[in-house]
Amino acid sequence: MTNCSQAKRLFGDFWDDEVTQAEREWLENHFSACRTCRREYDELARALELAGSLPRHEASPDLLERVLARTRRVAPAPDRVSAPAARWVPATAAAALLLVTAAVVSPWLGLSPGRMGTGSARLETPRQPELVGTQVNVTTSPKSGDADAPPSASLFTDDGTVPDSLFDHRDDIEFILDPVTLNRGRRV
């Protein structure tokens, strides 16, 4: 590489004042020896001075007002960047925790999955109520000529107590009481 082409490579940095001290001294020595490079650099510097000294085109005085008037009409644009995941993670975690808690606690509340399920496999035909027939002492006193009349059931059981209901609800209450307690002592 000749000295002149090496010098020209430094013109830009020399103008920007980004040369080392050694480069600066070398270039200045070269300029004193090479009038062509000196003139090349002077023309470059003059061109850049002219460009840098151009009058600045100021914004029109009403630019701010025009911008503000338009921004007031501009609807806020939706963010193209999706919302950070951290915003919905806590809500999802709370919902999951609630579900797990419900699943753990539900047996203790007597809410068996069979009763809670909604699928068709879980649907059971409603059990017809049964009369507490065996224990109830039915004192039939049909009147003659009234054979089709329904027997009137006495409200007293064999042991003389009054039943809570004419129907056997023991299976029903199984769902709302502790099944362990309920099955204890139950007749098979």
Binding site: R56, H57, E58, A59, L63, L64, V67
Partner: peptide, 10 residues
């Protein structure tokens, strides 16, 4: 806007 309008216009 005030700060940058001159430089941007220029």
């Amino acid at each position: 806007v005030r700060r940058y309008q001159g430089r941007i216009t220029n």
